[in-house]
């Protein structure tokens, strides 16, 4: 009998590819955002609103992660931006290798901002670095307040948290102040943007912040 000590990171292969992705994103000066949430929290609608608001100032492309369909990709395409679809065929998260292949298909000329819309899931995507500059997590008022303490990792690692569907606040038990307090405990440096993809409320403030991030990235590369 032999014992072999490895002490090897199980996600090491993914992290190696993610590092390579990060280098290619940086060399092109493109800000890359990994957008994550549970299913149905409104990631695609927020992307539509964001493209409407920023599309003339910023050249945007989207990598759409979806289990089987291209429904989200079709919606984004109608907004006139480049979309590359990844079907994960049942896998519950995107990994760095999938993003590498999708990125190769993108026309990078003048591109400023690349969104990677991850598969709707608060657990698994948190483990997989894609090479992004930072993560943005969407939580919606209809999901209830307990999502944040229940899935701390994904919220701890987000640079910004979008609290969607604030137009429905009067019809839910969701408490916006409690949500902000929970985020303060888990991730005090997160930027929190209450907004509504449906009515457009709060989109302006989020987009202004985002524009600042895009410009900062452009300057630094």
């Amino acid at each position: 009998m032999v014992q072999v000590n490895l002490q090897t990171n199980i996600l090491g292969a993914n992290e190696l590819i993610a590092r390579k992705n990060r280098v290619s994103f940086k060399s092109q000066g493109i800000l890359v955002i990994n957008l994550m949430s549970s299913p149905g929290s409104g990631k695609t609608t927020i992307l539509e609103r964001t493209i409407e608001r920023l599309g003339e100032q910023v050249k945007i492309a989207v990598i759409e992660g979806d289990l089987y369909t291209d429904r989200d990709a079709q919606r984004i395409e109608q907004k006139g931006v480049q979309v590359i679809q990844i079907n994960t065929e049942g896998t519950c998260h995107l990994d760095a290798g999938m993003v590498t292949s999708a990125y190769e298909k993108i026309d990078k000329a003048d591109l400023d901002l690349l969104f990677i819309e991850n598969v709707g899931n608060l657990v698994c995507p948190a483990e997989f670095d894609l090479g992004e500059d930072f993560r943005v997590v969407v939580i919606s008022t209809t999901e209830g307040n307990d999502k944040i303490p229940k899935y701390p990792l994904i919220f701890h690692e987000a640079k910004a948290v979008l609290v969607n569907k604030v137009d429905l606040l009067p019809y839910t038990e969701f408490n916006l102040q409690e949500c902000q307090e929970d985020l303060e405990k888990i991730n005090p440096s997160a930027q929190v943007f209450p907004l509504s993809g449906r009515t457009g409320e709060g989109i302006e403030i989020w987009c202004e912040w985002l524009l600042g991030e895009v410009r900062a990235k452009g300057r630094n590369s």
Binding site: V2, Q3, N5, L6, Q7, I10
Partner: peptide, 11 residues
């Protein structure tokens, strides 16, 4: 943490 510590086997 998420790592493979070690394994045992027969040569």
């Amino acid at each position: 943490e998420l790592y493979l510590d070690s394994y045992e086997g027969d040569e």
